[in-house]
Design a binder for these strands. Structure first.
Length: 895
RNA sequence: GGGCGGUUAGCUCAGCGGUAGAGCACACGCUUCACACGCGUGGGGUCGCAGGUUCAAUCCCUGCACCGCCCA
């Protein structure tokens, strides 16, 4: 189509360039950090996605923002390290592989045995582990891939062992028997954070327990979980409850079981609720556990790991599922006449966030981390501002959780993960050590002889290893130079949903082992929802695949949309129309470049924007400087939406809509004279501004900008010094130009007003008339001369000359310092023009009255800042002047 | 129950003490020599409700209503 192979096509085709361009960046080492350099470091630790996961829209948001920060800081001359990697994601990954085994009717993991199963998981990791990192590349993310880490890498695993051993020796990790959240499907303990409570319409059953030694006397207890009664070891009443005072100290006979259990007084019983008496099952309820401990009640565990009834329950229930037993217990109690009533009861039921089954509080031995101790210096660090949350309100959420933190259960009954470095002797005495040899040595010392040791089968919570991410990836515990250089990081970018899971724990481990916070800023971004504000989920069918969107609209459009919508403190409701809108913006940039190319706007080596002569060019240079500064300030303040807005408005609404339109008459002017100099300068300035747009846009929209950077140079036969992404962020030594701005504002105002009147008076677009400027001030006359071609071209006039003569059939446009008369013989309807002017005058009247209200208010004059008063006085004067001109204009056409 | 956030144009959202903004959508007009993924012009808002502070409130304070999220 094009005559010249270097001429740009009409539209930008993202799909044609993105992958190849990315590969070239990566191959050229553009993403690499340079620990040997003298530049100040800038570090972002990438939150490691699940190794077997795939990219969702939330990833697209978080990685776009991080990439924008990294690319921007790289351009400002910092030695930027964006540390990438993936997480082994213990439960999630193990579940996937187990599901595969089940689907292929293969052996279960227990049938396979630990070694074979782990080999299987590793091979799955090898096979699918590259998916997400490949997808990150499609998104344009620019981390230092050569430094990619995996949480189960040798080095990172060593870090895990060292941390575990040290914390154990410091007494901050310990083994304890207490209730855990047990997942009966996955057969593992999970932490509080992995439990989600769901609202459920349940029931409250009221059972009558016969009091021992008092025939026909019963005590009624309410329960939402009848099956747990088989493990009851007490009944609690409030110490002040008169109804039951006499019964405290006696026992009840537990129906169906026959066990004699005591009635105890405990504050936990709420006299206002139900009967005021509660059954106590210490082995299966977190509250009851506390009551049981306080009152020395027995702890009877009646469930097995599948949450089926075990040998501690009466024989007929053994081996049956908890929910089956629930029905049986209720039926039997009813048959015995011990079921008093059933009420509907709204309640919350705990579910495992991975398995989706009801979680069972279960009494087991687990490893715990004393989070309370580790949390204290983190709280202090945030209080003192050594780590800063952006937006700040998340600090409250952080404090709230950290100040009420519970022991962190860190052991998981899984195989995929870091196996706990603990070995047990014959008497179950634990030996925690860095290696098996060390454990054996310790054991020999302890027992005075060689003994057989058994390694703890369990692995650590996935978040235990990710908590070390900010330093384990840098080489810790070895003394790597990177540690000193890149720790602490500058900012951590993440969603609020993992403040507790991850942010808080990185702070605990970072402060404890590195002696300093792991990052200075924590930028918490929004969650991406669908356009109706609903969470995206596969079951709802409303997920948007970021890569599909990239394929349709181009990666830059997707990135720019997410950036533009990333306002602080608000969730993002993403509508596809927005992406299409920003795709159009990308095309607009493309076409601006195409226009400049067609008009032979070529970068002039040594072009100095400070030295431009024409008002037009002074103006656009000043505007460009302003835009670049605006983008930089916004990115540095994490106001990504502002950065996008500045970029968008400058490029489209200033550069394309006005400057390029103004440049057209300059480019098409006849050869010869001073015009030739102006033409050359405008060409050079246009090329320069486009370059600046590419530079400041690069962090947000790297593909189209880099592509244009190359293509423009190629067409102009210019050699660029390297990729756009390594260009220095511009530092202009250019002052604002208020005179040029005022002058161009006037030109814009004149054009806009003439266009407006033309449309309102239904003047055909093709009609070009010879207009005059009546009562023009000296300044206006000068401007008219300078910008005559621009005004005529853009307002579609044949000519515009200063002339005080009255024209009979004219539309009259009041502008600053004059009135434009548009002769419209045969086109204009004078009555309509009178109406129009009257309306404008009325508008001015209203404005002036509004200002007068203020200016006649003594309080306002006395108390408002003088500059505000002056501003309103000036505004009023301007309006009065304009109104006078309008009145004159109206008088001229009123017979 | 506790905490946090939201309520601004038809939709999605900025703004957060000095006469209300954007994108999309809508209406009208444009084959204006980069772009119809475009150009121009326009309509559309008592800034959730009620009080208070202030010369001045969409913006600050109090209360209420509704919506959402987190934690019990």
């Amino acid at each position: 189509m094009t005559e010249d192979s270097t001429t740009l096509d009409k539209t930008y085709n993202a799909a044609d360039v993105e992958e190849a361009l990315y590969a070239r960046w990566e191959k050229a080492g553009e993403f690499a950090a340079h620990p040997e350099s003298k530049a100040a470091p800038y570090t972002i630790m990438m939150p490691p996605p699940n190794v077997t996961g795939s990219l969702h829209i939330g990833h697209a948001l978080t990685f776009t923002l991080q990439d924008t920060l990294i690319r921007y800081n790289r351009m400002t001359g910092k030695d930027a390290l964006w540390q990438p990697g993936t997480d082994h994601a213990g439960i999630a990954t193990q579940m996937v592989v187990e599901r595969q085994l089940a689907e292929s009717k293969g052996p279960t993991r227990r049938e396979m045995g630990r070694e074979a199963f782990l080999a299987r998981v590793w091979s799955w990791k090898e096979q699918s582990g590259g998916v997400i990192t490949h997808q990150l590349r499609r998104l344009g993310a620019s981390p230092d891939w050569k430094r990619e880490r995996f949480t189960m890498d040798e080095g990172l695993s060593r870090a895990v062992t060292k941390v575990f051993v040290e914390l154990f020796r410091q007494g901050l990790i310990y083994r304890d028997k207490r209730l855990v959240n047990w997942d009966p499907k996955l057969h593992t303990a999970i932490s509080d954070l992995e439990v989600e409570s769901r609202d459920v319409k349940g029931k409250m059953w009221y059972f009558k327990y016969p009091v021992d030694g008092m025939p026909d006397t019963f005590i009624t207890v309410g329960t939402t979980r009848p099956e747990t009664m088989l493990g009851d070891t007490g009944v609690a009443v409030h110490p002040e409850d008169e109804r039951y005072k006499a019964l405290v100290g006696r026992c009840v006979i537990l129906p169906l079981v026959g066990r004699k259990i005591p009635i105890v007084a405990d504050d936990y019983a709420d006299p206002e609720k139900g009967s005021g008496a509660v059954k106590i099952t210490p082995a299966h309820d977190f509250n009851d556990f506390g009551v049981g401990k306080r009152n020395n009640l027995a702890m009877i565990n009646v469930f097995d790991r599948d949450a089926k009834l075990n040998e501690n329950a009466p024989q007929k229930f053994q081996g049956l599922d908890r929910f089956k037993v629930r029905d049986m217990v209720v039926a039997e109690m009813e048959a015995l006449g011990l079921l008093e009533k059933i009420e509907a009861n709204a309640m919350q039921v705990p579910y495992g966030d991975r398995s989706g089954v009801v979680i069972e509080p279960w009494l087991t031995d687990q490893w715990y981390c004393n989070a309370e101790v580790l949390a204290q210096p983190c709280i202090k660090a945030v209080e003192e501002g050594r780590t800063r949350f952006v937006p700040k309100n998340w600090e409250n959420t952080f404090f709230e959780w950290m100040r009420n933190i519970q022991p962190w259960c860190i052991s998981r009954q899984l195989w995929w993960g870091h196996q706990i470095p603990a070995w047990y002797g014959p008497d179950n005495h634990p030996f925690v050590a860095s290696s098996e040899d060390e454990a054996y040595a310790d054991a020999k010392k302890h027992y005075g002889k060689d003994v057989e040791l058994r390694r703890d089968e369990d692995v650590l919570d996935t978040w235990f290893s990710s908590a070390l991410w900010p330093f384990s990836t840098l080489g810790w515990p070895d003394k790597a130079p990177e540690l000193a250089r890149y720790y602490p990081g500058d900012v951590l970018v993440t969603g609020f949903d993992i403040i507790f899971f991850w942010v808080a724990r990185m702070m605990m481990m970072g402060i404890h082992f590195m002696g300093d916070v792991p990052f200075r800023d924590v930028y918490i971004h929004a969650l991406v929802r669908d356009e109706k504000g609903q969470k995206m989920s596969k079951s709802k069918g409303n997920v948007m695949d970021p890569l599909d969107l990239c394929n349709v609209y181009g990666t830059d459009a997707v990135r720019f949309t997410l950036t533009a919508m990333a306002a602080q403190g608000r969730d993002i409701k993403l509508a596809e129309t927005r992406i299409a809108g920003y795709r159009n913006f990308i095309t607009k940039i493309w076409n601006a470049a195409r226009f400049s190319q067609m008009n032979e706007c070529v970068i002039v080596p040594g072009f100095d924007p400070k030295g431009v002569k024409t008002t037009l060019n002074k103006w656009i240079v000043a505007k460009t400087v302003e835009a670049a500064r605006g983008v930089a300030e916004a990115i540095e303040a994490y106001r990504f939406n502002d950065a996008a807005t500045v970029m968008y408005q400058f490029t489209w609404n200033i550069f394309c809509d006005w400057y390029l339109e103004f440049a057209k008459p300059v480019f098409s002017s006849q050869a010869g004279g001073s015009d030739e100099a102006a033409k050359a300068e405008t060409r050079a300035a246009t090329a320069w501004v486009i370059d600046q747009i590419l530079i400041i846009g690069q962090p947000m929209i790297p593909f189209v900008t880099e592509t244009l950077w190359e293509k423009l140079a190629e067409a102009a036969k210019i050699k660029r010094a390297g990729f756009l992404m390594q260009q220095p962020w511009p530092k202009y030594d250019i002052k604002p130009s208020p005179e040029a701005e005022a002058e161009m504002d006037w030109v814009v105002d004149v054009i806009t007003k003439i266009r407006s009147v033309r449309t309102e008076m239904n003047v055909p677009a093709s009609l070009q008339m010879a207009a005059t400027l009546k009562d023009a001030s000296t300044g206006a006359k000068a401007r008219l001369v300078t910008h005559n071609a621009l005004i005529c071209a853009n307002a579609r006039l044949a000519s515009l000359k200063a002339d005080d003569a009255v024209i009979a059939n004219a539309a009259q446009v009041v502008v600053g310092e004059g009135t434009v008369l548009l002769p419209l013989e045969g086109v204009i309807d004078l009555s309509k023009e009178r109406e129009r002017l009257a309306k404008e005058i009325a508008k001015k009247d209203a404005d002036i009255a509004n200002d007068d209200k203020k200016l006649t208010n003594e309080g306002f004059i006395a108390k408002a800042p003088p500059e505000v008063v002056d501003e309103i006085r000036e505004r009023r004067a301007g309006a009065v002047d304009a109104r006078a001109k309008m009145n004159e204009a109206l008088a001229r056409i009123s017979a």
